[in-house]
Design a protein around this nucleic acid. Structure first.
Lengths: 144, 144
DNA sequence: CCTGATTAAATCGTACACGATCAAATCGCA
DNA sequence: TGCGATTTGATCGTGTACGATTTAATCAGG
């Protein structure tokens, strides 16, 4: 039961909170010249893997609700990165498809991934092990 | 150099992003009945350690800029959790002091820390080791 | 003592993130 | 077949985050 009275810098929650912000800042400096925000880049990552996912599928992949994803996708549509269209078979669903512009940005993504890897400053195998630890923690937290 | 074309679930950035959100959701469910948000709780944590910090000191502790901290503290002042006052020696600075109400909430924080620890579902020493790994990564990212 | 540089907060605009709720489409079962 | 339950996105309000800028106070060199 419980870790008593740790201070802020000692808490796992603050480690995640501040590390996530630090990561976003590094990405943002690289994404700025593409005119992308960090969540927009994550959406593109997911669509590059599989184009034409529905809003719900994207939300499950990003672990976000429709009240976050819908405005995000509308802004991306406004930027000409994606198209949104109701699915004929089931009019409740909306399919999101990459435009040429959205697809074209994938070319830049390898260079960005390389910069991020370098910025992490650790060996690839260590980084993958850390990722698995964090992912495991996340999945246990989600199961609460 | 770099890690070529990983998919979203494989990326360290998404691990941090989604784990941070998962952590915030667990906290939020515990903080809701105290009427606190997660960042507000982090500010209280910091003030419980040392009351009467300036806006700048709080910002450095939370790794946030004044444009985030100032509105956050104003809301907390509106909730009666803290007081804000200019420092006499240097009128540029604003000192933030806990009210009785803000101090009183510390009593609940141990129970919350216990719930979080349980939700993490891992041994204390493993959790501390993971925290150190994440903190180390964060500090390298901040040094970029 | 004065003035330009620096520092500390605050302000403004934009973009997430989420709880709560809603409207429309589809499903399921009597 | 018909109608209540479920599913899917969207909407609304509040609260972070942050880049860019602003204001006021302090500092530093002449």
């Amino acid at each position: 039961m419980g870790q008593p009275d740790l201070k802020l810098p000692d808490m796992i929650c603050f480690a995640l909170y501040s590390a996530n912000h630090a990561m976003q800042r590094v990405y943002q400096s690289l994404l700025a010249r593409l005119g992308l925000t960090y969540p927009q880049f994550l959406v593109l990552m997911q669509l590059w893997t599989e184009d034409g996912q529905t809003v719900g599928e994207l939300g499950r992949a990003l672990q976000l609700e429709s009240n976050t994803v819908t405005p995000l996708l509308k802004r991306m549509e406004g930027l000409g990165l994606v198209n949104r269209a109701r699915v004929a078979k089931d009019e409740r669903q909306v399919r999101v498809a990459l435009t040429d512009k959205g697809r074209g940005l994938q070319a830049e993504s390898d260079a960005i991934a390389g910069c991020i890897f370098d910025a992490c400053g650790m060996a690839a195998d260590e980084l993958l092990a850390l990722r698995d630890q964090i992912t495991g923690l996340r999945d246990r937290l989600r199961a609460v």
